[in-house]
């Protein structure tokens, strides 16, 4: 069976994720409807505005089904807003904001500040190595549960030590956007992870 990865295409930079996956030779398709979710083995939640993605996912009946699929073991990866969507709880979000779960973490939205504070930096990622990361009004994981593996932290500056890349079982999340850098190593790691579960 060929691995098919869906990219949640309600809002945000889903096209960049689709392109990154296509470049890795993976069949990737946009997901906006429950029927489309049913055809994919894994899901990427893109960068974007988490409040808008949350609202659209609720309005179009996707939030529940995605949450159930992830709970049932569907591999998932989220960048930035996608990290917020894959957390257990959101700080500085809207009261009506929902998440899909997947990683036992509390995520702080816009944790680094406003757009003028958005930045690029190098982050050492476990299993990947040094990575040029782009943070845009990015979140961080404020706290993580005992089963969460921390893959990357900010080094130096005001946010020294903050958690910006995590993995728990089949779910990965990064506060930064590998999809806008052209460096495919994070996507490759997720594809390998998803493929591993497909073969089981």
């Amino acid at each position: 069976m060929d691995l098919t990865i869906g990219v949640l295409a309600l809002q945000g930079d889903f096209r960049e994720h689709l392109l990154a996956l296509a470049e890795l030779g993976v069949l990737a398709r946009p997901v906006r409807r429950v029927e489309e979710l049913d055809t994919v083995h894994a899901l990427v939640v893109p960068g974007g505005e988490s409040t808008a993605i949350s609202k659209l996912a609720v309005d179009f009946g996707l939030a529940g089904p995605i949450r159930e699929r992830i709970a049932a073991g569907m591999p998932a990866y989220g960048s930035c807003a996608g990290m917020i969507m894959l957390g257990a709880e959101v700080l500085d979000g809207r009261p009506d904001q929902v998440t899909f779960g997947g990683v036992d973490m509390v995520v702080r939205r816009n944790a680094f500040g406003r757009q003028i504070d958005s930045f690029e930096t190098d982050v050492e990622l476990d299993g990947i190595g040094e990575f040029r990361t782009v943070f845009i009004r990015a979140p961080w994981a404020e706290t993580v549960g005992p089963d969460v593996e921390v893959i990357g932290r900010i080094k130096g500056g005001r946010a020294d030590g903050r958690i910006v890349a995590v993995r728990q079982g089949r779910v990965m999340a990064t506060a930064f956007h590998p999809e806008v850098t052209g460096d495919l190593r994070v996507h490759q790691t997720f594809v390998d992870l998803a493929r591993g579960y497909l073969d089981q």
Binding site: L10, Q11, D13, E49, D117, F119, E120, T121, G157
Partner: peptide, 23 residues
């Protein structure tokens, strides 16, 4: 610039617009 950390790059500015797409 603070060591390797840089704000206001074209990638950070254009990337912000990428996140607004479809909205």
């Amino acid at each position: 610039t603070d060591n390797t950390t840089t704000t206001g790059t074209a990638r950070v500015k254009r990337g912000m617009a990428d996140m607004l797409k479809g909205g």
